[in-house]
Structures are given as C-alpha cells and as structure tokens.
Design a protein around this nucleic acid. Structure first.
Lengths: 205, 205
DNA sequence: ATAAAAGTTGACTGGTCAGTTAAGCGTTGT
DNA sequence: ACAACGCTTAACTGACCAGTCAACTTTTAT
C-alpha cells in the first residue's frame, strides 16, 4: 500500500476535526482548506465533494482507531476488564478533545449522522456502519462475559445494542451540556446495567 | 393572554417541523418562508434572527406538549403506568412524524442541540433546559414508584438521568438508521432497567 | 373620520457557499 | 531532452445565504 499524499491526509484530519468540533453544515470547504493551509483546487482534486471528504474522513478516523480498539478488546484480556478499559478510553478521548477545542464534542459519528441522516444517504449509511462496527466489540466482550458467568445479562446482542444507545445518549448529553461530568458515572452505570459481578473487574486506577 | 398572530404561529410551526426533519444548518429562512407562504420581511418582523425563531419554536413546541405530559404523568395514575403511557406516547409521536416526513426524526431538542451546541449558546441552553424539563417528569414518577416499592432502583435522580440518556440514544439511533424498529424494545428495556416488578404495569394494549 | 400602530410586501445588499477551470509547477520514466 | 503525470494555484461562477429597507395595506384606538 502506497503512502497517501500528505495533502490528502491533512485534509482528512482537519476536516474530521473541524466537523466533529462544530458540525457538518457549519464547516465550509473554505474553512477546511484555510485551516489545512491548502488551496481549494487541491481539495477538489482529491475529493469530488464535501460529503465525500466527510465519508473518507470517517473511514480514516476509524482505521486509526481500530488498532487501539483491537488491543482493548483483545481476547487475552478478561471481558469485564475490556469494558473497563473501553470506558476509560472513551473518557480520556473526550477529555483530550474538550481540552483541545474548549467543548465536549461527543461521538463524531452520532453527531454528524444525526445532523444529516435525513438528507445525505452516503454519510448516514457510513455513520450507521461505523456505529455498528464499534458496537460489535462490545457484543463480543459480552458474549465472553456471559460464557464466563461474570455478568447477569443473557443476550449479548440485545445488551450491546442497549449499551450503545446508553453511551451515545450520554455522549450527546455531554456535548449539549458541554460538561464532562455527565460521563462521570458512565462506567458504573454500564457495569451496573450488565449486572457485572463484584470483584470481576480489577481496580486499575 | 392575547392570541398570537397567525403568521407568527405559522412560522413557528413550519420552522420547527422543517428543522426537526432535516437540521438547523440545512434549512434556510427562505425555505421556511416559502413553505409557510409568507414573505421574508414578515419573518424578520417577528424574529430578529433565524436562531431566535428556533428558540421560540422550541418554546412553543414544549408549551403545546406540556398538557399531554401533565396528563400522562398525573399523580392520579400509578407511577409505572405513567412510564408505560409515556413510552407509548413517544413511540406514537415518532411513528406519526415518520409517516408524515418519510424519516424517523428522533428528538428535536437533542438533534439540533447536538448540531449547534458548540457554536450557538442560545439554542444550546434552550435544548439543555427542555431536555431537563422533560426528564423531571420521569424523575417524579420514579420517586413515586420507589416510595410505592414497585421498582428496585433507589435513586430517582440518577436513574432518571440514565433513562434520559438511554432514550436519547435510542432516538438518535432510530434517526440515523431511519428505522422505527430500534424503538421496539424501548419500553421493556426501560422497565427492565428500573427493575419494575412484574404485574405492576397494567396491560392496556 | 383619522391617525397611529401593526403587519406585509418584494426588491435589495454584501457576503459566503460548493464547485470549476485553465494554466502552471515539479517529478519521473524513457 | 522531453513528455506524461501528479499535484498546485488563484481567479472565477452562479446560486444561495442571513438580514435590510422603504413603501404599502390593514387593523385598531380615539
């Protein structure tokens, strides 16, 4: 695989950051180009449209995130420990972003997905796909936890779906309230919800 | 209280509907005026800006919704029955909207709140306020249910916050996936989460 | 009746939007 | 040497944006 052009990468990264921070509709192609220090013509050399950049930026972001997720959700790690690390990872990510941009930003796929769901099918479908890809990690951890007997829930698919909703809702509220405190009880709420048995998660903090 | 002008009411209603259906950023003042059959000058006679219309439209929508919510959450009704009716009300509302606009629309406060949270403080604050106003109904029902002993949860505030996140997350996913099926298990998930004791909810369907 | 107040009209402004274009630069293969 | 290719540049288009305005009509208060 050839190394992608620097300009293209810069556009993907800047585009993703700007759109995540504010919204798809309020970030213009000019904004992205200006911030990236790149001419508009180059933007349209690499991407046929603003929507295509958004989809590509999502893809890129996901690809960068995957190795970390694979590590967190490795089968070598006890399932409840995976959930614990995942919660920490989410919180840390939100905290970093908030410090960098001065706002709690929530889930990028959810924010933009919700924004344009009813009128841009390409982005909508990508959001849905990536949100589901993310959920599958949780599903597999739950499957293992159920087999192990360290949780009381029975159905890993249904539970992961509910957990996903809960998480997305919390991230949404954190964004709207612009307050990380919303996420403070995230892990305990999640562990409580799946009926994690006391002592099954090692204290690592 | 004097009857508000017809034009103003029309703008509030059309503005709310259009923005809810698509998004704040993708609906222009011209769109709203055209759909309302009203001249742009009149728009700016009643509202100083597009953002002010949005805030006023939220307020109006909430005021229209309140009597129904007051009825559902009346202290005359058993607390778990209130939750049941509330779930039905949400589902029916989503279904109606979906049939009318051809999309699942989710929660208007959440969608727009999330969209502009990081750059329009007026709308952000209003979204937060209305989402919280809505939550308080649930909190009071939970308080009564706990007193009654028909649920296992202990803390009505914390539980209502979590329930709110769960609901917003589900509505968000229903919007992104454009599928009402996401909401199918909403009530049972909620009842399960609060530890509703079997037989405490009358079957009314 | 009349004048002020309330509401309406449509043309207008200046800026921004997504996207285009044609000319040019630097590298690479032959 | 030179031609093809990958990429960049900056000026451009035409549509659309939020918001303005002065002239107009309708309603209300006296």
């Amino acid at each position: 695989m050839k190394k992608t052009c620097e300009t293209k990468e810069k556009l993907l990264q800047v585009g993703f950051d700007l759109i995540w921070d504010s919204s798809y509709g309020s970030v213009s192609v000019d904004d992205i180009c200006k911030r990236a220090g790149i001419n508009k013509g180059s933007f349209y050399y690499f991407f046929p449209s603003k929507a295509d950049l958004a989809v590509a930026a999502y893809e890129e972001h996901w690809n960068e995130k995957r190795p970390k997720m694979d590590r967190i959700f490795s089968s070598q790690i006890p399932p409840l420990e995976r959930i614990h690390q995942w919660c920490q990872y989410i919180y840390e990510g939100q905290k970093e972003k908030a410090e960098k941009y001065g706002h709690v930003c929530g889930c990028p796929f959810a924010s933009v997905g919700s924004e344009i769901a009813t009128f841009d099918e390409k982005i909508r479908a990508k959001s849905e796909f990536l949100m589901n890809s993310s959920r599958k990690y949780v599903e597999s951890a739950l499957t293992d936890a159920i087999r192990e007997g360290t949780v009381t829930v029975k159905d890993p698919v249904a539970t992961s779906l509910t957990l996903q909703s809960l998480l997305l809702g919390m991230l949404l509220e954190a964004r709207v309230q612009n307050d990380l405190k919303v996420l403070d009880n995230m892990e305990s709420t999640i562990l409580d919800f799946i009926g994690a048995k006391a002592g099954s998660v090692l204290a690592t903090t």
